[in-house]
Design a protein around this nucleic acid. Structure first.
Ligand code: FES
Ligand code: FES
Lengths: 144, 144
DNA sequence: GTTAAATCGGACAAAAATATCCGATTTAAT
DNA sequence: ATTAAATCGGATATTTTTGTCCGATTTAAC
C-alpha cells in the first residue's frame, strides 16, 4: 500500500516521537536499529522529514532528532503519507486508469471506492502521537 | 495496491470475458488496445492467465483468447490477485513488519486490519463475470 | 502445400524503487 | 584549539518491476 520509503518514514517519525516523549534525543543509529531499517537509507528519509518540518535535527556531537510533541498531536498519518507517496492512496484508480472518477469508473471502482474512503478517513483521524502512545504502552511494536 | 502486472491481468481477463460474452474471440492486439496496456507485456501476462487456466488460447491464424463463462461466474477477483501478487494484500503488514499479527501488531494494525478484512471480503465475493457484466452494460470502462 | 496470422517462450532492456558510500559540515566535550 | 560524534547532501550502486525483442511454433485460409 505504502512505498518502502513511506513505511520507513512512518516508523521513524513514530519512533522519534516516542523517544522525545521519553525525554531522549534519537540518533540515526538508534532510529535505524529501532525500526529495523537500513541506516544510510533511513538517514535520507530523516532528512526529508526534517525538510518537511515533521521533525527537527540537532547537528554535532550528542546531536540527533526530536519532535515537537504538540505538533505530533495534530499531525495526521495522512499528512505524512502524502509527503512520501503523494495523493495516490486517496485518488489513484486501483486498476490504473488515468483518472479515478465515478464519471468514468473502472469495473472495480464502485466496490473499491467506499473502502478506500474509509481508509483515508482513518488516516486523517489518526495522529502520530496516537501511534507513539500505543508504542510506549507496549501495545504495539515497530520490529519483527 | 496491486502491481502493474496484476492490474493488467485483471483488466485483461475482464476484457476477454466481455469478448467471449459477445461471441468474439479476443486477439492480443485487440486486448492490448482494449485495456491500454503495452502489447508485448500483455502477451506475457496472457500466457500466465493461460497457464493458470483462467483463460485459454487458440493458436494460429484467427486464433486468440477466450474464457469459460461458467468458470468466470465462479472465479473471484481474489483468486486472480493471489496468482499475480500472492497473499500480500491479505497478510502483509502495512508498515513492513516481517509478519502481521495481533500478537505483535505494528502501531497501525488495529485500525488497518478491519479495513483490509473488508476489502478481502469484497475481493472474494466479486466474480470476474460480475465485473465483465458491468463493462458490457456500459456502466464501467477499462480505459482512460 | 504455401502463406499469413496468431500465440509461445526465453533472453534482453529500460525504468523505478530501494539502498549505499563518502566527503563536507556542524558542534559538544575535553 | 582539538577531537570525536553527529547530521547533510550529492553521487553512485543494487534490486525489483516493468516492458521489449525476436525467433519458434501452431494453424486457418487459400
Ligand atoms: S476508476 Fe478505478 S478505482 Fe476509481
Ligand atoms: S502488524 Fe502491521 S498491519 Fe498487522
Amino acid at each position: 500500500m505504502f512505498s518502502k520509503t513511506c513505511e520507513h518514514a512512518i516508523k521513524a517519525i513514530i519512533f522519534v516521537t516516542k523517544q522525545t516523549l521519553e525525554g531522549k534525543r534519537a540518533s540515526l543509529k538508534t532510529i535505524a536499529f529501532g525500526i529495523e531499517s537500513p541506516e544510510a537509507y533511513t538517514a535520507k528519509i530523516l532528512q526529508l522529514l526534517v525538510k518537511n518540518e515533521f521533525i527537527f535535527s540537532i547537528k554535532g556531537a550528542a546531536g540527533g532528532f526530536e519532535t515537537d510533541l504538540n505538533k505530533m498531536k495534530k499531525l495526521s498519518l495522512m499528512r505524512v503519507v502524502e509527503v512520501f507517496d503523494g495523493d495516490s492512496i486517496a485518488n489513484r484508480c486501483v486498476l490504473g486508469l488515468k483518472t479515478c472518477s465515478s464519471r468514468n469508473p473502472c469495473p472495480f471502482h464502485d466496490k473499491y471506492a467506499p473502502v478506500r474512503a474509509r481508509l483515508v478517513c482513518i488516516l486523517e483521524n489518526t495522529s502520530i502521537m496516537d501511534l507513539a502512545l500505543g508504542l510506549i504502552a507496549g501495545k504495539t511494536s515497530l520490529k519483527e
